[in-house]
């Protein structure tokens, strides 16, 4: 894996930027070069949020991801906006609780996960994003599980450390799906 470009998109508040941080830290824990670039500004408040992440063996050129190898979409607007930008041969991880469309693209792998429903069924409210990361990890292994585990520990702030266990459960749930 020389260079993998991720684009994560959804509503502000769904943990899009946090998911990106988990992916980036996983890459860092694996000794790779990484970059994380958020959309910023007024659109983040209740509007759409998206985040570009790159993991590479080489120093990263443009950190802005325009044609993602892996797209994670958590609302319909983001799905409509970005599904056509996924690189041929790439992958889309889609929260099918919130997006009831299926892509007609045959040159990418689309994985539909009812992540938001799974989160409420398993007492993991607010962790649909991490469930999707788990599914991503299974279908496109971007890092070792141990690296992801360490990344979660890095990304969850100390005052919320009681949530580490729930995050790890969410990853595993996503991987089983």
């Amino acid at each position: 894996m020389a260079l993998t470009n991720f684009l994560l998109a959804g509503f502000g508040g769904q943990g899009i930027l946090f998911s990106g941080k988990v992916i980036a830290y996983s890459g860092l824990m694996d000794g790779k070069e990484v970059s994380w670039l958020p959309s910023y500004g007024p659109e983040m408040r209740g509007g759409t949020a998206n985040c570009s992440v790159c993991i590479s063996d080489e120093p990263i050129g443009s950190p802005l991801v325009l044609t993602p190898d892996i797209l994670m979409a958590m609302n319909l607007q983001s799905y409509d906006k970005f599904i056509h930008s996924v690189a041929p041969g790439g992958m889309a991880i889609i929260d099918s609780t919130l997006i009831d469309k299926k892509t007609d693209r045959t040159d990418i792998t689309a994985v539909y996960v009812p992540a938001t429903a799974l989160a409420s069924d398993h007492d993991l409210q607010g962790l649909a994003n991490i469930i999707l990361i788990g599914t991503m990890l299974k279908h496109a292994p971007f890092a070792d599980f141990e690296a992801v585990e360490k990344a979660i520990q890095k990304c969850v702030p100390p005052r919320k450390s009681h949530l580490i266990e729930a995050n790890l459960r969410a990853i595993k749930l996503g991987m089983e799906y």
């Binding site: 860092l28 970059s35 670039l37």
Partner: peptide, 10 residues
Amino acid sequence: DGMLGQMMEP
């Protein structure tokens, strides 16, 4: 610039 200010890298 805003990109360098907002982005994260190791």
